[in-house]
Design a protein around this nucleic acid. Sequence first.
DNA 1: GCAAGGTC
Length: 664
Amino acid sequence: MWLIITEKDNTARRIAGILFGKYKNEKINGINVYLSSDGEKAVIGLKGHIVEVDYPAEYNNWTKIPIESLLQADLVKKIKEKKIADAIEKLAEKADLVTIATDYDREGELIGYEALEIIRKVRPDIRADRAKYSAITPDEIRKAFSNRAELNYNLAKAAETRQIVDLMWGAVLTRLISLSSGRMGKNFLSVGRVQSPTLRFIVDREKEIREFIPTPYWEITAVFSNSEKFSAKHEKRFLKKEEAEKAFSRIGETAVVRKFVEKNVKEAKPTPFNTTEFLREAGKFMPPDRAMNIAENLYMAGLISYPRTDNTVYPASINLKAIVKKFLNSEFAKEAEIALSHMKPSRGRKETKDHPPIHPVGIARKSELSKDEWRIYELVVRRFLATLSPDALWAVRNAEIDANGEIFRANGKKLLKAGWRQVYTYVKTEETHLPELKEGEILRVLSKKLEEKQTKPPSRYTMSSIIKLMEKYNLGTKSTRHEILKKLYTRGYVRGNPLKPTEVAFAVIDALKSEAEVITLPDMTAKLEEDMDRIEEGKLKQERVVEESRDFLSRVLETANREELGRRIIEGIRKDSVVGRCPECGRDLLIRKVKGRFIGCSGYPDCRFSIPLPQKGRLEITAKKCKEHGFSVLRLRPSRGKSWTFCPYCGYLEWKEKEKKTEA
DNA sequence: GCAAGGTC
């Protein structure tokens, strides 16, 4: 029998369809297997990595095992997907040839090897080869399976090296930081090649904001008129008050139009969705990990295409028109008409052959989906239709006005043809009015204004802007970025959106910067990528790369001052538990845990002020402050049901009030 | 209980 192994179930089914025509779908251990009608060929899909590298179980006790011993440990490969492993073993018993048909990339090569290693345990001498394809189209697949190659051992080794290096650095530094600060159990503090540089970006930005000193500047605006009124801005931003005042006083009662330009400008429709852009847009109304989960569900329900892709160009193999036509009988009939009137797809910059851009593949009614599912589905549909719709057209006007030597500029824009804007309703249409002017025309100055303004600090990253930044620095992949962000939240490193780092985050980044700065920089990923390339070329050995990491980490462990590290992080933890100021003595109020949790004064035992807290459920401090008392708003996540937020001091005052009444 | 990477 010929056994074909793919990266996931879905591709297994599609490949069976292409290679066998009709196929039989059987289950082994509940795992889908697709057989040719004579039963001589079988395709089975994995679930990505079905094994993972880890330390042997005896290293599990963080407090008893010295961290140094992790550096000498032999790593083991643990089977994560037992059912799949058993199923391929069973199939291998009957097979005389195995073809690895996982994704054609570094991780895919390793995923294939993992499956082959499991098979070789029962069939050490089985023949194995590799099918390489970059799109699941009949042509590509047939070509790939008739021109099979050898497995690329070096490529798989490169990916395995990444796993080992990531685990080693992650485990050693995670334990170092967690053990020295006493943050154990589910409160541990993590460190990693991707998460730590990402967190550093967020912390560095927060520092810039804290250290920002606003500087004043002056702006002059004036209202002019011919037959209509409009306002214009002085071309200069004045840094000195005297200069601004001098210019301001020069402005007389009339002015003259120096330049007036009017032109029509096309505004290109948006480009097809890749994962990053999709999450960015969904980020306007939903956190990315949730958006990704929903997209995953919609994909499995056959409503949208595969949501993990880098591609922003529709391949020729998709029948775009057929898809649009399906929407003529849907909630998007009007939008489909607009797309059909044009049908010229836009193209993004990145063109890859892995998967098409995210687009709808099936029709859903609003009533069939949950509220959030519908929002994501609608976003994908509207984006898709917009990429096929006509460009928008704007009438743009620019004027330059001379008021006694002081130059003002005014701009106007008016939407002439809405085009794709009627379809993709997530961008606001903002028009500004500027009447038609003539060069040399004399205007009246109706009023003028001199305003003092302040420069503003940079803004915090949002979920979508930080994902974009990670992409720019090659941190993580399209499939992992949103999960890395989620990690930063659950570790208590960031709160809210825009992302505000906690004091613990500051302390951890500071600690890492002084002990092992490279883990906080994108350079580590860049270096690892270079090493992997060289391993793939056969010019570098895995052992050398691992040895280099081992040397570095062992030096870190030798020199790190754990007491000092711990002190700094614990101080951060204390600051993070501050929820407000004590109304009795003015000192910090903290969330404390002494036989149950409560809010207590940091001045205890001098000050015994306290506020009770609910004992059950997970309690989080949000980034929001109560408008009335300046207290941190808390969020309670009960084990069942919806979470809610409250100001502990408001609750306390209400409770006091009630108590008074019952006494009376 | 540690990472990041696949996939669900």
